[in-house]
Each structure stands twice: as C-alpha cells, then as structure tokens.
Amino acid sequence: MIINRSRYMTQSIAKFLIWMGALSTIAVMILILFQILKEGLPVLHLRFFLDSPKNMGREGGIFSTLIGTMALTGVAIFFGAPLGVGTAVFLREFTRESKISRVIRFGTDCLAGVPSIIFGLFGFVFFVIQLNMGWSILSGGLTLAAMILPTVISTSEESIRAIPPSYREVSYSLGGTKWQTITRVVLPSALPGIFTGILLSIGRSIGETAAVILTAGSSLVMPTSLFSPIRTMSVHFYILAREGISMEMAYGTGAALILLVLMINMMAQWLINRYIRHRT
C-alpha cells in the first residue's frame, strides 16, 4: 500500500517536472520575443527597411545591412550546401563503413564543435590575409560555408539514411545507373530533410556575429560586389548596442532580424509541406 502510494507520488512529481520543463521553454521564448518586439516594433516602418543607416546608425534605416545579411548568407549557402550534400551522398552512397568514411565523419564532428570565433580567426588569416580577399562578402561567406558544413552534412546524411533501400533496388532493377538512382530517387526523397538542414544553416549564418566581424568587416556602405565589405544585421545590432550608439535602433534591428528569420522559416515550411504533399 505504501509502496503503491510512493509510485503514484513519483508519477505525479515526474509529470509536474516534465510539464514545468515544457512550459518554461515556451515562457523563455515568449519573454525574449516580447522584450525585443516591445522595444523594436515601434521603430519598424517601411522606411526603416528601405533607408540606409546614417550617422553611424543613429538615424536612417538598415537597408545596407539587410542586403549585406542576405548576400553573405547567400554566398555561405551557395558554397556550403552543395559541398555538404555532396559529402553526405559520398558517405552514404559511395562508401561503406570504412577508414575514409570514419575519418570524414570524425572531421565533421570536430568541425561541429569548433567555436565560431575560431572559424572567424581562420577566415581572417586564410581568406582575408593569405588569399588577399580582404574584408568582403566572399571572405565572410566562405568562412560561414565552412562553419555550416557539419550541419548540412549530418542532416543530409540522416535523411539519406532514412530512405528505404528498396527504392534504390527498384531504380537499379529498372536499368538505372548509380548516378540516375541518386539524382532521381535518392535526392528527391531526401530533399525535405536536406532542406531542413539548409534552413538551420541559414539561421546560423544570419545570426553569426563574431566570425562575420573578422571576415566581412562592419562597413555600413552599400556593397557593390562580392569583394565589398559589409555589415550584417546581427553585427549592426551588436555594434549599436555595444557601443551605445542607439538602443532604439538596436532593438529595431533585432526585431527586424527576428521577423526575417520567422519569415524564412514559415516560407520554407510551406514549401516543404507542399513538396511532401505532392509526392505522397
């Protein structure tokens, strides 16, 4: 009887703790959103998005940083995604478990654990100085590409692994070559998972600060080419707040960042769902 009661006791305590865990997660998220949006939303007007920053960012808008953010993230994905997906395909379709695949996996796991500032330092020494690309969209983008590689590789590999082996067997049995099997059956089936990985990477790229300052600079001038230095929204936010230039504008930038990420996520989710519905 006593034992029984203690079992029920344990059950209710566990239930309480688990609920608390879930609720506090949501509470933290709401608090952050609320804080940023409360301070930031009043600043957000169309002009804020379309005007370039003036007077160090005290006045004007964030247009050049918005462009900088998108350009940098675009370059990062342009280089990082194909490389990562290619590596995942290699690991899953071209090798069995072997020394090479273990070395590659160990390498990506290590990369995943490296702090972003170290990537920044590497990018600064290698791209900015060694290759003489200067603080630029290209230097920053390539650095971020290296940073997001582990995420792209592991999520792509996971979704390729989840494809039933029978799909491949069918493709081969219908006279498909390995390449045809990969491009027509494996990758299309893995696409939602790969896309999710790329989405995570976009989020990381947009939010990155330390590595970006070191490799893409913090110039407020509108970029004209891939070799122009830029300032991303995250860096803008950091500098505005850190140097006490304008908290109002900092919050505005933060709110814009959140909305941007939210918008990208919603759009991507919509695309993924549409794709999956179309295929099943």
């Binding site: 029978s166 799909y167 049995s173 219908l174 006279g175």
Partner: peptide, 29 residues
C-alpha cells in the same frame, strides 16, 4: 536489367505519381 525485369515480394512504388512510376524506366534511357 531492362531485358530481365523483376517484381519484388512487397509492392515497391516509388514516392511519385502513378505516371512517373511507370515512366521512370523508359525515361532513364
């Protein structure tokens, strides 16, 4: 493999439309 076709013990439709399933083999060439 085009001359000797195989059907497996469990149905194995590919995750695409009926048309694309049938056209999969012919399109490969």
């Amino acid at each position: 493999r085009r001359r000797i076709g195989i059907v497996f013990d469990l149905p194995t439709p590919l995750p695409m439309s009926i048309f694309d399933n049938i056209a999969y083999g012919p399109k490969l060439s």
